[in-house]
Design a protein around this nucleic acid. Sequence first.
DNA 1: ATGTCGATTTCGCTG
DNA 2: CAGCGAAGTCGACAT
Lengths: 231, 231
Amino acid sequence: MRLVIARCEVRYSGRLTALLPVATRLIMVKADGSVLVHSDNGSYKPLNWMMAPCRLRESSPSPEAAAMGVAAVWTVQNDKTTDRLEIDIHEMLSDSAFEFGVDPGLVKDGVEAHLQALMAEQITVLGEGHTLVRREYPTAIGPVDILARDSRGGTVAVEIKRRGDIEGVEQLTRYLELLNRDPLLRPVAGVFAAQEIKPQARVLATDRGIRCVVLDYDAMRGVDDVESRLF
Amino acid sequence: MRLVIARCEVRYSGRLTALLPVATRLIMVKADGSVLVHSDNGSYKPLNWMMAPCRLRESSPSPEAAAMGVAAVWTVQNDKTTDRLEIDIHEMLSDSAFEFGVDPGLVKDGVEAHLQALMAEQITVLGEGHTLVRREYPTAIGPVDILARDSRGGTVAVEIKRRGDIEGVEQLTRYLELLNRDPLLRPVAGVFAAQEIKPQARVLATDRGIRCVVLDYDAMRGVDDVESRLF
DNA sequence: ATGTCGATTTCGCTG
DNA sequence: CAGCGAAGTCGACAT
């Protein structure tokens, strides 16, 4: 990884056009060639960037640019698109490089997938007598998180979210519309399950006859086998 | 901005739990206290981070941790939530700080807002005789991008997207459903306008009686006053 | 390659 | 403050 601190102007053109006026910033060049421009302001994402695959070319400024105080010009060109980053280096304040080696990567616990696994194990949170048909039940427009049957054998489609907003209700609605065309499944009831359900989402869901279930992640995790926790 | 290169293990707990095993990484501490942990792998976002407002505390490792090779422990605690980042520094390879000053920030051109402004100016791209009622027409479930009237005085609701996919059609459908409950407006026709419309979105829109319009951004911009371009 | 969907989504705006 | 929607969304995974 190469780290450059420089006073620079940055221009991006591609899906949109963006300009960063001259200021001191951090330019990060990663091992795969990707380039990130960070300010000292909060914001976990760079002000401007170019993702791999791309090519960094360092060149001398034109006489006009040099007269404007540009010491060097970096051009980062995406290999596959017309996306391009142009960095006018006005003053190089620091330039260093480090070898990092391979990163083992991030291990996560507690994302939606885990919530779905817990719910599949504890399917009776939907009500007594519920049984699991399968997780990630495939449809033409994407997988339904959970397909189950209620105590009377009726089909139940469950959409699980950490935070339940209106989009999740729309998603479930699309699945229900499709599933209810299948004579072997219909009628299919919908359940919108989330750790937190936004009022507007609840209104929309209720209006469409979709039941809302609020999930207690910690409680479900507590019931769950300790072994299933990653750490 | 403080830049640290270190062999470290990072643990995040908060909305989820995440673990980064020991490896060499860049730790960026920004002026507002936010902390970003980057690997040398591509990925424009950090592996782990904590956004401001938060507090960084540097402390000595416990005897057990020290025996495991931990030289220092950084704890980054969010001021308002229970989100916490714990960084075990095993080996400090570099530690430097720089003064950046204020960043003037990013100026963008060509985003959806611009597309919407152009369309409001050139509302007849919808057809002869169309007139603008207003942009960002408010409804209970959010603002409609553009409300217009056709040559016969009929109401037209327009949803504008850079990339038109199925979500945009759903969004417009929700607006239409609501607007058509208003006796003063109904019947309200829908127009789905985008620079590019995905086939699936077009099928869904057509099925729902929504007209699709492909926008030529460059052409609209060309017609537009040169002054309106930022650079 | 394309489609779908989650995300510690973040970010910005508006009421 | 919440709510809504955009994002150069990114990134992972399945088809």
